[in-house]
């Protein structure tokens, strides 16, 4: 029983991180209808800046810089590439982000060289003991940060001017434009926000607790797990992203323990397959899929 509780807590912590990443996909998709395959490279950019400036700025400063740099990188992709390819359809734009991803990932991995740094200094590898449970501190911090950020996002999405503008645009682009909503500002904010969430996520991903591996290709591969999370929740549903993230986190943690560690990643994808066969547009996705 204790093992099970431990697994659930750790799984939820991982799930919170996946939820942050999946939320980023969904925000970008809702705003621009582009599936951002370069999300993994945003994660790497954030992590790389933390690693590069940690000694000079201290961890907190470096973490802030990492988040900002991931956000700026996302904004650059949107401003320089996506907006300049107006003629291309959304599927081509998704493939364009693959091109960006290949370049950025190779460059970051080259810059890291033989290093695979951990970037979660204040909480990494310091397990917590309470009530007979051993919980990874990283996962616990991730869960708390995830809850705070996701709550903040949903409040902003519901009540802030930006949130209203974004929902209006996702609903009907022309009508939103006629109401005086600046489309370019909405999409730019969406990318910025998604990048920042990726920047936060990497602080937990490249840790001993989360993956046992530092920043590198492995981190990029973990970011890929957020894809099933976003897809199984439904690509155009913010709630779906969070639920999907938690499902993926729990599936990974439980199957790693009860089946085998090697199977855990396949398990995530199998769960997604089953869900997709039953609900082809995810749990909370819009049924009518004319835009995909």
């Amino acid at each position: 029983m204790n093992t099970f509780l431990q697994l659930v807590l750790n799984g939820l912590g991982k799930g919170a991180v996946y939820a942050l990443l999946a939320l980023g996909f969904v925000i970008i998709f809702k705003a621009t209808e582009v599936v951002n395959f370069a999300h993994g490279s945003l994660v790497l950019i954030g992590g790389y800046f933390v690693y590069a400036t940690k000694d000079a700025l201290g961890w907190a400063g470096a973490a802030a810089l990492g988040i900002v740099s991931a956000a700026v990188a996302a904004l650059l992709i949107e401003r320089l590439l996506i907006t300049n390819a107006r003629n291309a359809d959304v599927n081509s734009l998704a493939l364009l982000t693959i091109g960006v991803d290949v370049i950025v990932t190779e460059e970051i991995v080259r810059r890291l060289g033989a290093d695979i740094p951990f970037v979660g200094d204040p909480y990494d590898a310091l397990p917590l003991q309470f009530a007979g449970l051993t919980v990874f501190r990283t996962q616990l911090v991730a869960l708390i940060v995830g809850i705070v950020l996701i709550t903040a996002f949903f409040l902003a999405f519901r009540f802030s001017t930006w949130g209203v503008a974004m929902r209006a645009q996702a609903e009907n682009k022309e009508a939103a434009a006629l109401m005086g909503i600046r489309s370019s500002r909405v999409t730019a904010t969406a990318w910025l926000l998604a990048g920042a969430l990726a920047g936060v996520a990497v602080l937990f991903m490249a840790t001993q607790d989360f993956s046992g591996a530092g920043l590198g290709r492995g981190t990029h591969a973990i970011a890929l797990i957020a894809f099933p999370a976003a897809i199984l929740g439904g690509l155009d549903s913010t709630v779906g992203a969070v639920v999907g993230g938690l499902i993926v986190g729990l599936t990974e943690a439980l199957s790693a323990q009860y089946i085998s560690f090697e199977f855990s990643k396949s398990a995530v994808f199998l769960v997604m397959l089953v869900i997709l066969v039953i609900w082809p547009s995810g749990l909370f996705g819009t049924r009518e899929l004319s835009r995909v």
């Binding site: 599927n91 897809i231 090697e262 990643k265 396949s266 994808f269 199998l270 997709l276 082809p280 899929l289």
Partner: peptide
């Protein structure tokens, strides 16, 4: 085909990615 026929666009792309993970696991085991 039951999967590829039902899903479209990116959904199919990510669903097909699961085969790569499955292949990795099966190849190893």
């Amino acid at each position: 085909a039951p999967v590829s026929g039902r899903l479209r666009g990116i959904y199919l792309g990510v669903a097909s990615l699961s085969l790569v993970f499955l292949g990795l696991y099966l190849g190893q085991s």
